[in-house]
Design a protein around this nucleic acid. Structure first.
Lengths: 259, 259
DNA sequence: GAGTGGTCTAGACCACGTA
DNA sequence: ACGTGGTCTAGACCACTCG
């Protein structure tokens, strides 16, 4: 290992490059411990801050994690499948818990969620999608889902207040058959949904709420559900950490005359 | 503006917090110039490196950009709609999609793409999805798409070599009616597709190829197309910079007998 | 207690685009 | 030519966790 002062590439990038290479070619597999800052300082004959700059860059890329005082470690990535379409698909009748729990307890991981319900003036993004007038309020069910005790993703579901007034949607409990079914029972069955995905870095608030490691981007998943009359009755804001999810869709060509 | 040494929060985070606040509340709108490092050093009475650490963090969050030597500027975000379903629905009825998202699309923007075709031993990810034996080769069409002269996203389409041997898929030209139609003409019409989205930070290679600003995550979109016999005939690896795309799906509840 | 990374300082010189 | 951010040095002290 050596670095060149005269090169076009800054020293810290050369160091980062060597480490990145060792990670991607398997020399340092997930979970492996990286050299300490002191060791890099010594090995490359640079100031500690220069070695640090290389490591900091890899942290920002999401490749490694700083676990003080044990050192830096190669990150692992074990995403689970996230299938938005599932909520419209027929489900086994014996399922008595909500979608998330059903999907993951089966895999031997302990699923849990917290629920907070409140009545709020919704964010602009929700207002647009639910076509609310200024001042119209919504009921929001804010959930944080945990897997094996670790926060996993968040799900904030907004409903126009007048649609869900007095229903069990307003109670901060699990709804075994799903909030969508409750809406359907109240004559607001959703037949169409629009999914939008925004990819960005998390806000500090999201970083805290989901205990995100530095260098973890999120998918911001916005779902809006419509009745057969085309009325939006539900908007959901999901925050999906990139290191924990792979988003999957399946589509089929609509029936048509063969060519 | 003031920072406290005694607080639990590091000084650089306090500075970053104040700047972040000014950005999110509109005091510094997109395009606005931030204080220089010297100005922050003076205003908060800290070393230049401390002010720098705050700015570097905001760069890594994708909130600001360093445009040397003009200064730091608040980033803008003007994503366009990305609709994977479109390829199966030439004239889709996107009743809801276009309602919300400002369309900077094709209108007035110059679209262009480069195409490279080669025969390669595909990456593992492609091998898995096309169910290839070791050593089986693929044809790959690598495209970089530009909008207004700026690289926008990349699209690498892999086909089993024996399926497309001698077809126009192997020529590095635009295929007006689409590669899928060419496959269909050769008895490999795709009727089903699987979309997978991985959210992560870009590799240095992707950063270069797409001229990504620091702090820009990407969606890695993997599409696999199947014939009616269930044979995979095409796998596409798309890299979609998060600051330039919003991914949109629309779904309808399948017709079903109520149980 | 030892070793880790986290924070912070106070300098230096450089590369680069704009004026 | 000037001012900007980019790189790099050589220190210092701290907080935390592990053995």
């Amino acid at each position: 290992m050596s670095v060149k002062r005269a090169g076009q590439m800054p020293v810290w990038q050369q160091i980062a490059g060597e480490l990145r290479q060792a990670i991607s070619d398997g020399t340092m597999p997930p979970g492996a411990r990286l050299p300490t800052e002191s060791e890099l300082t010594e090995r490359f004959q640079v100031a500690r801050n220069t070695a640090r700059q290389a490591l900091t860059a890899l942290v920002a890329e999401g490749l490694i994690i700083a676990a003080r005082p044990r050192g830096y470690f190669v990150r692992d990535r074990r995403p689970i499948n996230y299938r938005p379409q599932q909520e419209f698909m027929p489900q086994p009748r014996y399922l008595e818990t909500d979608r998330f729990i059903a999907q993951h307890s089966a895999e031997g991981r302990e699923a849990r969620q917290t629920i907070e319900v409140s009545i709020v003036d919704p964010p602009e993004m929700v207002k647009d999608r639910l076509r609310l007038e200024a001042g119209e309020l919504t009921v929001v069910r804010k959930r944080v889902r945990y897997l094996d005790g670790e926060p996993f993703n968040t799900n904030d579901s907004y409903f126009p207040l007048d649609l869900v007034q007095g229903t069990e949607i307003m109670r901060p409990d699990d709804i075994a058959r799903g909030a969508n079914e409750v809406l359907a029972e109240n004559d607001y069955r959703q037949v169409r949904a629009l999914d939008e995905f925004y990819v960005r870095m998390p806000t500090p608030e999201e970083t805290r709420r989901l205990a995100l490691a530095p260098g973890t981007p999120v998918a911001y998943h916005v779902v809006t559900g419509f009745t057969s009359e085309g009325r939006p009755v539900r908007t959901v804001l999901n925050v999906l950490p990139g290191d924990r999810h792979v988003i999957a869709f399946e589509r089929t060509r609509p029936a048509q005359a063969d060519s």
